[in-house]
Simulated scan of single mutants.
Amino acid sequence: MKKLAILAIAFIGLTTQAQEKKTTREQLSPEQRVDLQVKKMTLDLDLNEKQQKDMKTLLVKQQQKREEAKAKREAIKSDDVKPTTEQRYAMKSKMLDEQIAHKAEMKKILSEKQMEKWEAQKADRKEHFDGKRKEMRHKSKK
C-alpha cells in the first residue's frame, strides 16, 4: 500500500512538473529578426551589399504587413465572431496577392541562380513544416 501511495505521489509530481515547463522565451524585436534573416540569406545565397540593403528594406515592409495582419486577426478573434466565407476569401486572396508581389520583388533583387536556390530552400522549409504539422495532428488524435 505504501508503494502505491508513493507511486501516486511521484506520478502527480511528474505530471505537474511537465505542465510547468511551458515557459516562453523572450521574443526578438522585428528589427533583430530582419537582421538575422538578412544575414542568413547572405550566407545561403551569397548576397552582395546592394542586395543585402534591398532585401532588408523588403523584409522590413513584409514584417510591418505581417504585424498589421496579426493585429487585425487578434482583433477579430477577441470579438469571438467567426469571419464569414466572403471575409475568409478576401483575407486569403489578399495574402496570396502579397505573396505574388513579394516573389516579384525577390526576382528583382536576386539573380536567376540565387532565385532558384531560394525557391528550393522555400520548398524544403514547406516540406519540413508540413511534416511537423502532420506529426502534431497525429499526436493530438491519440
Rank of each mutant, 00 (worst) to 15 (best):
Q27D: 06
T16R: 01
E20N: 09
K39D: 10
A10K: 00
T23S: 05
V38I: 08
N48S: 05
R25P: 08
T15Q: 11
K50Q: 15
Q27G: 03
L14A: 15
P30N: 05
L28A: 15
P30L: 10
M41N: 07
T15V: 14
F11G: 11
Q19W: 07
S29M: 09
R33Y: 02
K39V: 07
L28F: 10
K40W: 08
L28R: 15
T42L: 04
A18P: 00
R33S: 08
K22G: 10
P30Q: 06
N48E: 11
Q19F: 13
Q32R: 08
L36H: 04
L43A: 08
T24H: 13
Q27S: 10
E20F: 09
D35V: 05
D44H: 10
Q17T: 11
T15L: 15
Q37F: 05
T42A: 12
D44K: 13
G13K: 01
L43R: 13
Q17A: 13
L36M: 15
A10P: 07
E49G: 03
R25E: 09
T42F: 03
F11H: 03
V38N: 01
A10V: 11
E26H: 08
M41S: 14
Q32D: 11
E31W: 08
V38H: 00
V34E: 01
G13D: 01
A10T: 13
D46F: 05
G13S: 09
L47H: 00
Q32S: 13
R25T: 06
L47P: 04
K39I: 07
L43G: 12
R33F: 05
L36R: 12
A10D: 04
Q17Y: 12
E31G: 09
F11E: 01
K21T: 06
L36C: 05
Q52T: 15
D35W: 03
R33W: 04
V38Q: 01
G13E: 06
T23C: 04
K21I: 12
I12V: 14
Q19L: 12
K39H: 06
K50D: 14
T16K: 04
E20C: 10
P30F: 04
F11R: 06
R25D: 07
E20S: 12
I12M: 14
Q51E: 13
E26Y: 02
S29K: 06
K40Y: 05
M41H: 05
L14H: 00
Q37K: 14
K22L: 11
E31I: 10
I12C: 12
M41E: 11
F11Y: 06
E31H: 12
V38D: 00
Q51D: 04
D46I: 04
G13H: 07
T42D: 09
E26W: 02
R25G: 06
N48R: 08
E49C: 08
T15W: 04
A18Q: 11
D46E: 11
Q51I: 08
K50H: 11
T15R: 07
V34P: 00
E20G: 08
L45A: 04
I12A: 15
G13T: 01
A18Y: 11
T23R: 03
R33H: 12
L47G: 00
T16L: 15
Q17C: 08
K21C: 06
T42Y: 02
